[in-house]
Design a binder for these strands. Structure first.
Length: 886
RNA sequence: GCCGGGGUGGCGGAAUUGGUAGACGCAGCGGAUUCAAAAUCCGCCGCUAGUGAUAGUGUGCGGGUUCGAGUCCCGCCCUCGGCACCA
């Protein structure tokens, strides 16, 4: 044992001063470059661990969601570093995008200047939070050194057919003056602006994500064990694969020029080819060529068909929408029976899915059934399930049951089960050259062109002679001029002659530069790899192979579809162009929950609500203790609007800066971790923050009060401990055991409660009663608490002399519970009689089953509650309970 | 409408996955300290009945399996997400 007298005792501040402590710690970390991550660092035998938070948009200030996200990330890397892992936690900025343009219009400041200022503020806030970020890898997506590689890879994709240009009807957002991807249209409105989306025809660039649809789906189902089932399901549904048969109804309907429409084949897709003999009509979308032709042939029909395009596309509207249609008077031929089948136009057929046409089998499809009933079309049962009897009077659940029935009224297909029947039908259609098995996906190609200034310029040049010509690699990046201030009249690049003017790379003649920029989802599709190979001369380099795939990705569930799917696609595209060797970028994914807060308002005119920040409200409760409203300082009554996501509209956000200023970063971190599990939504509470602060003050007071004995004492001698001290040590190590379990499963709220239990136990032993236990306790507590509250624990670690004896807390050995401390002489077991807890018995911890049974059977409570009956059976659960059945 | 989470004290939540429900914290109540307050410390704190020991009851509702159910099964209700009238 080390000589105690050699230890130096610091003079400690008696009370916790968060500002002084946090400034000192952050200065020290910065001066020592404490969080620089180096590939293959020999200090860390367990190998790399890359944990990354989703790239924040530099909107101005951090919000509480960021604090939560980054604290989870920070705890993880601090814990793993002490376990011997070479950890990497980077940070950067999703710096392109529309809000900068909106801010520019409002404040007459260039998006670049606005963005860089926001980055400066938010970076300093990250530093004030004490995050273990390796800032040497910081990037901003608006930096030409970054977006050069967006452009370079886009050109590679063009060369390899993964990117293409096409003119298409697109979603036009009249407010943002931009095109939206299908995914970015929510309920018929732009996902950012909320404006009602119009249809426009515009040329643009698309990335061929659908080429990877099958691989993405397969990996979703089989190769992402570290993703939640929920997240995988969301992605699976989004990709939306259905397997079925695509086949044609032949016809000789001709267009105005006398040519057969679609070569005389009306294609449909079905997952229920087993019901093909039950077809009594076909229905096409109002935009389908046959519908258009029907309108031309019969002018009376045209407006009726046009009317079928009406109606909302939201879920609720669609669910309630009446199935309507128009008969065209045109006929196609059933491919197997040769019967004539009338073509209808239906408002429930979507031009964007499959071939925009369906076969109508009213007996076995609920929508077709409703349609047939409305228009008195024949209904023909072709599948029987069990001994259910079919009645066309009303739809029954089993009519549409896929895979449960057998064919009837279907000629040669009678008696066949679902799969056999589909196979037989597909084979017969194939033999006639009219169809085949096929999978259809909901996923569409990714349109990346934006008619917007503040984004990555799409690196192509328009030449009158050569057409569209990609910018050669040597001329990249195409640099975005940063001085423009958008004024709402469209993309300023369209008026920037210096930017527009260029010469054709092919023929050298004067040409015009493309002014569209890329969707910002391109920026975020691969930034996490650029962190890994920061400042590389190529898009990525060998360091990417060291850090990637990422071990843990952390971010909000709102990116479950778009960002994650694009990032996965981008990774596969990079792999196929030889830039990397792995298939999936993110091994493990954590979606932290939303932060919620109470909403208060005063009623305004016309039902409007004037939202009041919760900080200004004195809350009132009803007699059950539930919040029912509140009052303002001037006595005004305010209404309670329930709990909702922190946001600007409801004015119920909490500014992390206020928290840091008032309580310090450690308190803010402790609070956001303690409030609930990382993936659960969390409701804000001011008083609970006070509680977090109180705990840290107690930790400080405990250490300051016992600094002398902690710094100078030796190790615990178990033989000399009193019963109380033994019990306190048991609680300490038991809490440590729990905390280690919870660190492993990333349940950080109970890690915090474990540290509280430790302090509660340690405080039961008075100062001076057992200095060695105080020392052991402080040593365990500080290390366990460190990943949550790094500033205060680092300061105390130094002040109490632990740094001298055990080195920096950042790389201290992670504590393990002492098995001896967890052994008790006697243990309490719950005593149950007939499964009801009736008391407890105390037995030696070494007692065997027979002994426990004997003690339990003799317990007075058994006699009392068993009403004197003799035990029939005794169940012993070791260490837990004993149940006497009488 | 379909799919997937989730419903536990006044509140946030815990229960190492079938074994003492309510850990830990917040709020509240009582006390100590103080001239007083703040801060701090000690005690109580699911509900019902009872002065009390205690008894009954209790994890959204109704059933079931089990010696034993917050946890598993069946049927509902509510709520939060996701979505596709997807043929």
């Amino acid at each position: 044992m080390r000589c105690a007298s050699s230890r130096h005792v610091q003079v400690m501040e008696p009370t916790y001063n968060h500002k002084a402590v946090e400034t000192a710690a952050q200065t020290h970390w910065s001066a020592t470059d404490a969080y620089r991550a180096v590939e293959n660092d020999p200090r860390f035998p367990k190998g790399k661990y890359y944990a990354c938070s989703m790239l924040p948009y530099p909107s101005g200030k951090l919000h509480m969601g960021h604090v939560r996200n980054y604290t989870i990330n920070d705890m993880l890397v601090r814990y793993l570093r002490m376990q011997g892992h070479n950890v990497l936690m980077p940070m950067g900025w999703d710096a392109f995008g529309l809000p900068a343009e909106n801010a520019a219009m409002k404040g007459k400041v260039a998006p670049a200047a606005w963005t860089y200022e926001n980055i400066r503020v938010m970076k300093s806030q990250c530093q004030a939070l004490g995050l273990a970020i390796d800032w040497s890898r910081e990037l901003a997506t608006c930096d030409p050194a970054y977006y050069k590689w967006n452009q370079w890879f886009f050109v590679k994709m063009l060369e390899n057919g993964l990117a293409y240009r096409k003119t298409q009807i697109v979603n036009w957002d009249p407010v943002d003056q931009t095109v939206l991807a299908n995914e970015q249209v929510i309920d018929g409105r732009g996902w950012r602006s909320g404006a009602v989306v119009e249809k426009r025809e515009i040329p643009g660039y698309y990335l061929n994500i659908t080429k990877y649809a099958d691989e993405l789906l397969d990996a979703t189902l089989n190769s992402l064990p570290g993703w939640s089932d929920r997240l995988r399901l969301i992605q699976e549904n989004w990709i939306g694969k259905s397997e079925g048969v695509r086949f044609a109804f032949p016809h000789d309907i001709k267009d105005a020029a006398g040519k057969p429409i679609q070569d005389g084949r009306m294609y449909v897709f079905t997952t229920r080819a087993d019901t093909i003999m039950g077809v009594t009509f076909v229905a096409v979308a109002p935009e389908h060529p046959l519908a258009v032709r029907a309108g031309e042939l019969n002018p009376v029909l045209a407006p009726k068909i046009e009317a079928l395009k009406q109606g909302g596309t939201t879920e609720a509207e669609l669910a309630l929408k009446e199935k309507e249609g128009v008969a065209t008077g045109l006929f196609v031929t059933h491919p197997l029976t040769g019967d004539k089948v009338e073509v209808w136009v239906g408002n429930y057929v979507l031009i964007t899915y499959g071939d925009g046409a369906v076969m109508g089998v009213p007996a076995h499809d609920e929508r077709d059934f409703a349609f047939a009933k409305k228009y008195n079309l024949p209904i023909k049962q072709v599948v029987a399930v069990g001994n259910h009897s079919f009645d066309i009077a009303a739809w029954q659940e089993w009519y549409g049951a896929k895979g449960e029935g057998t064919g009837v009224n279907s000629g040669k297909y009678d008696g066949l089960k679902f799969k056999d029947c589909v196979d037989a039908v597909a084979a017969d259609l194939a033999a006639k050259g009219l169809g085949e098995k096929k999978a259809t996906f909901r996923l569409r190609d990714w349109g990346i062109s934006r008619q917007r200034y503040w984004g990555t310029p799409i690196p192509v040049i328009h030449c009158d002679d050569c057409g569209v010509v990609p910018v050669p690699e040597k001329d990249l990046p195409v640099v975005l001029p940063e001085h423009h201030i958008p004024d709402g009249s469209g993309n300023p690049l369209n008026k920037d002659e210096a930017f527009l003017k260029c010469s054709c790379p092919k023929c050298g003649k004067p040409a015009r530069r493309e002014t569209d920029t890329m969707d910002t989802f391109v920026d975020s599709a691969w930034y996490y790899m650029r962190y890994a190979s920061a400042n590389a001369e190529t898009m990525v380099d060998a360091r990417n192979d060291y850090w990637m795939p990422m071990d843990q990705y952390i971010g909000g569930i709102e990116h479950a579809v778009l960002h994650l799917l694009y990032a996965r696609f981008w990774t596969k595209a990079m792999r196929d162009l030889g830039l990397l060797k792995f298939d999936e970028p993110f091994k493990r994914m954590t979606n932290h929950g939303m932060l919620l807060n109470h909403i208060f308002y005063t009623p305004g005119s016309h039902g409007a609500k004037n939202f009041i920040p919760p900080t200004e409200v004195k809350v009132t409760h009803d007699d059950k203790g539930h919040i029912n409203g509140g009052t303002l300082a001037d006595g005004t009554r305010v209404e309670y609007g329930g709990i909702g996501k922190m946001g600007k509209t409801e004015r119920n956000g909490v500014d992390p800066q206020d928290l840091i200023d008032k309580y310090g970063a450690d308190t803010a971190r402790l609070y956001v971790m303690f409030v609930g599990g990382p993936e659960d939504p969390a409701v804000w509470s001011d008083t609970a923050v006070e509680g977090a602060m109180r705990f840290l003050r107690r930790v400080w007071a405990y250490c300051a009060d016992r600094a002398e004995e902690i710094a100078t004492s030796g190790t615990v001698d178990v033989a000399t401990l009193s019963a109380e001290q033994k019990s306190a040590r048991f609680e300490l190590h038991n809490a440590l055991k729990q905390s280690n379990f919870d660190y492993e499963r990333q349940q950080y709220n109970t890690v915090v409660s474990a540290t509280m239990k430790m302090l509660n136990a340690l405080e039961t032993v008075k100062r001076g009663a057992c200095p060695a236990l105080s020392r052991e306790g402080a040593s365990v507590l500080l290390r366990t608490l460190y990943p949550v509250a790094p500033h205060i624990t680092c300061q105390l670690w130094v002040d109490l002399g632990f740094e001298q004896s055990e080195g920096s807390l950042l790389d201290a050995k992670w504590p393990q519970p002492d098995a001896a401390a967890l052994v008790q002489d006697q243990i309490k077991l719950a005593l149950q009689v007939n499964g009801k807890t009736r008391g407890e018995i105390v037995v030696p911890s070494s007692a065997d089953k027979a002994t426990i049974e004997a003690v339990a059977a003799a317990a007075p409570d058994v006699a009392k509650f068993g009403e004197g009956r003799t035990p029939k059976k005794i169940i012993v659960v070791p260490g837990r309970l004993v149940n006497v059945v009488v």
